[in-house]
Design a protein around this nucleic acid. Sequence first.
DNA 1: CAACTATTCAATAATTTTATTGAATAGTTG
DNA 2: CAACTATTCAATAAAATTATTGAATAGTTG
Lengths: 222, 222
Amino acid sequence: MELEKRIFKDKAYFLLAKMIKAMANPRRLEIIDLLGQGEKSVEEIAGETDMSIANTSQHLQVLKAANLVEIRRAGNYIHYRLAHEGIYKSWQALRELGLERMAEMEKLVKDFREKRNTLEALNIDELLSRMKSKNIVVLDIRPAVEFKNGHIPGSINITVKELPAKLKKLSKNKEYVAYCRGPFCVFADEAVNILVKKGFKAKRLIEGFPEWKIKGLPFETI
Amino acid sequence: MELEKRIFKDKAYFLLAKMIKAMANPRRLEIIDLLGQGEKSVEEIAGETDMSIANTSQHLQVLKAANLVEIRRAGNYIHYRLAHEGIYKSWQALRELGLERMAEMEKLVKDFREKRNTLEALNIDELLSRMKSKNIVVLDIRPAVEFKNGHIPGSINITVKELPAKLKKLSKNKEYVAYCRGPFCVFADEAVNILVKKGFKAKRLIEGFPEWKIKGLPFETI
DNA sequence: CAACTATTCAATAATTTTATTGAATAGTTG
DNA sequence: CAACTATTCAATAAAATTATTGAATAGTTG
């Protein structure tokens, strides 16, 4: 009886640990974070994460074996996506834990943002209240595909590359809030840095689009 | 610039992975789960998890290095506790993920509960609505110390060991709901099994006391 | 069906993780 | 302060994880 109990517990915790181990790797966390934007091919994932194709594939196999991702075949390409929303939510909870409780993590983010004039970031709740009153322009600094799959209503899609050319169309009387994929995505930081240096009033949103969506807030697609 | 961006991401995901790796081990998950009941000494943890003292201590060092647990010295004993509530919440989210999405996990739990007449379990919400209407008796099947640190209001503390002797004091007209530490804790299963075999109407609560508390529901101490 | 493309597989070496053992340490108690 | 207790440390061997390389595979296209 006591033995049976131990066997049950051993198996249960082993299975859970197996799943968590599949997450517990920097590369795979980056992949999970990225797939929060929607499905991507192996090639795209490798490109975005600066990994070799073979290594990317291997990590994807680990995630697939743990039922964390699913695939869709389209022509020569295989598209990977998160197997369900709960996976991104768990990642979000863990990321939150790290951001709030690890001193090293706090320092890392602070140092990075300090150099890029993005220390004064705002969160989703703050954005929501400001959107009502102030003349705020929300900028979505992600690739066009991701913008199309869903974005904050009223936001304007400009990538970091396009931004310098489009500066003259922006008014200096407005306040800009740039967002991208999430807390570890740096597109918004780069955009804010460019804007602030040119004399615009700009801040980044701490969270990204996935957090907006998971919060149940309305979003537009095209 | 691109390089700096990569270095930032590498460091960020590495730090997160380090923390998650500290969780991603069956023994350490069991420790985290156990510490959800409140602080315990190394000896107690080793006893509850059937590990050697040295091995337990080693795993505790890993958890401490990741800032997941804190210590309190009292006499010769060192008491470990979770460093904050968010850690148990994250564990809960991950456990949920596994319970809902891993076929192996579902089978494991089902097989175990089938043998113990605890397949027909109820969850906290169901218990709450039944507590209002029916003549339900809630049994807390945990060690007395844990009961003292907090329990569902009105619940009666009976351990598995004590139960057979106390059966005659229980009425067959009531319905019994047994709870313990959480989904992987088997005290409640054992209690329900004994009760059902003796002709009582009994079910287990799927969740345990930590889930009750984290939900913000009222609890009694003493 | 041959050439091509995206992805996976297999083999390897380097690194990390784990449990076990027994010794060392910090702190308490008589 | 000597004996004792709970915990940690250190050394080890076995097992697992990781990135790299190049070959193999599945599927598409002309």
